[in-house]
Design a protein around this nucleic acid. Structure first.
Lengths: 343, 343
DNA sequence: ACTCATTTTCAAAGCGCTTTGAATGACGCA
DNA sequence: TGCGTCATTCAAAGCGCTTTGAAAATGAGT
């Protein structure tokens, strides 16, 4: 059933039927009702490709999934971010498109997505330091938003980000206030921008307190459970092991906890742990009292906000650059306590 | 830059340029090279909407994300399944589209996706028992594949599934062989088809061994960490608590482990645990020796296979129904051991 | 040189929609 | 009765591509 057939059934022109369905005012209200009824009855859905061709808009937002194993770490938060964004997209009549690309062709993937007219805007996830893709997208002239930021990129661009530096600054201070001096950081991969900022916050807090950072206590790895476990076990074997550990995700924190258990150490007593909590729907940080003391910021919420900001950008390409910095909460749970006495 | 402009630059007809780029044999090889060079030079990308209009194909596969909280549980495996599928899609020139729908409009979401011509095929995820959507899709005549199956639906359809029943049958037998008699099942939500089948396998093994199922030991909940923890804690308080627990996902198994630790019980000694392991990239089941004894089946792999089966279906709509039943491995890890002696 | 088969190229129609610019009809008023 | 106005409706062009059916160019064979 297409527009032509429907208009013939109704004895109206395609123009009128199209306008009736799209809410144009210059169509008689009775006619509109008749048209709508007929459309429903015959199951007419306007072909979105044809519509897109005619309007020049696709009503689709594009995301790129890098397929390299380097980026597996995006996965745990992927689902929630996407779920948040998808809801807002559909509120505004947009769909969401994913393209897969391996590391070598990733730039091309972005380009083709927009140049082909497949999408009206793009979400850039997981920016690294000096993220080249930002300049590529800027040059292309595609509306886009970055989830995160990129140190070293000086063209202006829209972004939404958690204040990673201040989160980790505050978390580290919190541990220092509890008397901890040997504080470890199990960070994400440090070519990721968010990891850099977290490290900056961590280092700043150490510096404030006159503590000098120990490279042995600064680890950087994919944020998996296994790595959290591995790095923790490794550090516990040091002569002067950490009494507190900051870690970049709940997933790796679970690995940290496992390592502590295996070593017969009690979390929150022998060793304190603070995790960054993306508030994933399937991995809540406990019920009433949080399991982990954590810097918390909902990635689902970030997805929603990113979607809305992008849609605004598409509507108003000439607006000044929009940015949004979210502060994470520092929620205190059962995984932290005063530094143990070692005398 | 569009086809018309490119063809004018080249002094050729649109026909020839189009054919040159699409690899038709009736175009002179020299001409093809010239055309390809010019296309690259001028950054020409065929407009995919126009292409779709002309060919009647969109080269897009649709997925629907239900937005209700009932389905949060899909999230943890969502990322990996999608990553697997996306890779295969892009190998075959397909993109992937997501639409968000709440529970009331979910059927309409599928319908509109296809009827609007936005997609050439659909992946149905998370089927329930008596899954109504399967009949809807069948009636619509859209090529689709189900990840999972649906008990009670008797129209034929393509699916790929893990043999959930046999996995849990074998896992339960394994525990029985270790001497366990009080075996608990922390299942997923039981309106989900996979959960039913797992329960069937569990019950069958009990029955074989002449054990009668205890409703107190059969729990059904979303597969989150918190629920795994909650149900375990609850069961440990029983007069006759379980000595072994089967659980539906690694995520909930982590909650189980937490509850056991809190109770001062040693996993694999005091209480044995077997989890179903979807082999998620960010949540590997340990390194060399698995942490959890598990029924393992890669959901990423399932995503890849689903994608390929669907693409075949799109190519050959008339082929007989294709189904694929994967057997999970039963891998033995550190979380199981002989039933403790309670005399 | 001429025919015929083959290779290569082309003009034009069509995919299903929106939108422009024009036409039609109804109505009020002189 | 005739005219201008406003509310509705319409025919046709155009979005950028593929594909059909025909034409032009080339080459082999006599």
């Amino acid at each position: 059933m297409n527009l032509k057939q429907l208009s013939e059934i109704l004895g109206l022109s395609q123009t009128t039927v199209s306008r009736a369905l799209n809410g144009y005012p210059e169509v008689n209200e009775d006619t509109r009702l008749r048209v709508q009824a007929a459309a429903a009855k015959h199951g007419y859905w306007p072909n979105s490709r044809a519509k897109g061709l005619a309007t020049g808009r696709s009503m689709v937002i594009g995301h790129v999934i890098p397929s390299s194993s380097q980026h597996e770490m995006v996965n745990p938060i992927f689902g929630d971010f996407v779920a948040g964004a998808a809801r807002k997209y559909s509120d505004h009549g947009y769909d969401m498109m994913f393209t897969n690309a391996d590391d070598t062709s990733i730039e091309e993937a972005y380009r083709s997505l927009f140049q082909r007219g497949a999408v009206d805007g793009i979400v850039l996830q997981g920016p690294k330091v000096n993220e080249h893709r930002i300049e590529v997208l800027t040059r292309m002239g595609v509306p886009f938003i970055v989830h995160g930021r990129s140190t070293g990129v000086d063209v202006p661009y829209d972004w939404i980000d958690v204040n990673n530096k201040s989160s980790f600054l505050r978390a580290t201070r919190f541990l220092i206030d509890l008397g901890h001096r040997r504080i470890a950081l199990i960070n994400g991969l440090e070519d990721m921008d968010f990891a850099q900022r977290r490290r900056d916050g961590y280092l700043e807090a150490l510096h404030e307190a006159g503590l000098s950072p120990d490279p042995e206590l600064m680890r950087s790895a994919e944020m998996t459970e296994v790595y959290g476990h591995h790095e923790t076990r490794d550090m516990l074997r040091l002569d002067d092991p950490p009494t507190a550990i900051l870690t970049a995700s709940m997933i790796s924190a679970i690995g940290v906890r496992r390592a502590l258990n295996e070593a017969g150490l009690k979390m929150g007593k022998d060793v304190s742990v603070i995790a960054h909590d993306d508030d994933l729907s399937y991995l809540k940080n406990g019920q009433d009292v949080p399991i982990f003391t954590a810097t918390r910021s909902s990635v689902r919420r970030a997805g929603e906000m990113a979607a809305e900001m992008l849609i605004e950008r598409i509507k108003s390409p000439e607006d000044p650059v929009k940015t949004r910095l979210l502060e994470a909460e520092l929620v205190v749970g059962g995984s932290t306590g005063p530094a143990p006495n070692r005398f």
